[in-house]
Amino acid sequence: MSILIRKEGAEDYATTEKIVEKAFKHAEYSDQKEHFLVNRLRTSDAFIPELSLVAVNKGKEIVGHIMLTRIQIENDASTTESLALAPVSVLPGYQNKGIGSTLIRAAIEKARELGYCSIIVLGHKDYYPKFGFERASRWNIKAPFEVLDDVFMALELVDGALEKVHGTVRYSKVFFE
């Protein structure tokens, strides 16, 4: 399947929110409100327009979306900027065709190009490791809420970027509204 990945534009917002809503409608670990989160993130200081990407099919229809936003990893001595991968969404009829993987790889590459050093994800323990994600606990990085160790993961975009980083992830407050 031929897919083009491009930056999301303001004219795409309504479409991508519908995609996110449809993608999570029957998801097992979802509150079915991810589309509201995407909307709130766009108006927050966590939003990075260059890291909000869409997947477009040959018919020029948007079929997927991914967003990386600013977060911090904090401890008593320091704060380190990182990114959160949340959410990645593909229309149900296009799932299991590699579009989500293509979006994730494109977002990782774009984040590297922009000079970011790491990404944090709360996601499926068998899916995200294929992109290089490892348990965040390897670096003593913790979630700000109760979560299983094997689903809270980190990816170094620069070798050694997390070696001296430890602490608790601080997400934008809009994640909790």
Score class of each variant (00 low, 15 high):
residue 1 M to G: 15
residue 2 S to V: 15
residue 4 L to P: 03
residue 5 I to E: 06
residue 7 K to F: 07
residue 12 D to S: 09
residue 12 D to R: 07
residue 12 D to W: 08
residue 17 E to W: 10
residue 17 E to F: 14
residue 19 I to K: 09
residue 20 V to E: 11
residue 20 V to D: 11
residue 21 E to V: 09
residue 21 E to C: 10
residue 23 A to E: 08
residue 26 H to W: 08
residue 27 A to E: 14
residue 28 E to H: 10
residue 29 Y to R: 12
residue 29 Y to P: 07
residue 30 S to G: 04
residue 31 D to P: 09
residue 32 Q to H: 15
residue 34 E to R: 02
residue 39 N to P: 03
residue 42 R to V: 12
residue 43 T to H: 12
residue 43 T to M: 13
residue 44 S to M: 13
residue 46 A to W: 13
residue 48 I to Y: 10
residue 50 E to H: 15
residue 52 S to H: 05
residue 53 L to Y: 11
residue 57 N to H: 15
residue 62 I to T: 06
residue 67 M to Q: 11
residue 70 R to S: 03
residue 72 Q to H: 07
residue 74 E to M: 08
residue 75 N to P: 07
residue 75 N to H: 02
residue 77 A to Q: 13
residue 78 S to L: 06
residue 80 T to R: 07
residue 81 E to R: 09
residue 82 S to Y: 00
residue 83 L to K: 06
residue 83 L to I: 04
residue 84 A to L: 04
residue 85 L to K: 03
residue 85 L to W: 06
residue 88 V to N: 05
residue 91 L to F: 06
residue 92 P to M: 02
residue 94 Y to W: 11
residue 96 N to C: 10
residue 98 G to T: 05
residue 104 I to R: 02
residue 107 A to Y: 10
residue 110 K to L: 04
residue 113 E to V: 14
residue 113 E to Q: 15
residue 113 E to M: 11
residue 114 L to N: 04
residue 116 Y to A: 03
residue 116 Y to L: 03
residue 118 S to C: 04
residue 121 V to S: 05
residue 124 H to P: 11
residue 126 D to C: 04
residue 127 Y to T: 06
residue 134 E to S: 02
residue 135 R to P: 07
residue 135 R to D: 02
residue 136 A to D: 00
residue 137 S to L: 01
residue 138 R to W: 02
residue 140 N to C: 07
residue 141 I to S: 03
residue 141 I to A: 05
residue 145 F to M: 14
residue 145 F to D: 10
residue 157 L to N: 06
residue 157 L to C: 15
residue 158 V to Y: 09
residue 159 D to A: 15
residue 161 A to I: 05
residue 161 A to R: 07
residue 162 L to A: 03
residue 163 E to W: 01
residue 164 K to C: 03
residue 165 V to I: 04
residue 171 Y to G: 04
residue 173 K to R: 12
residue 176 F to D: 14
residue 176 F to M: 07
residue 177 E to N: 13
residue 177 E to L: 12
residue 177 E to F: 08
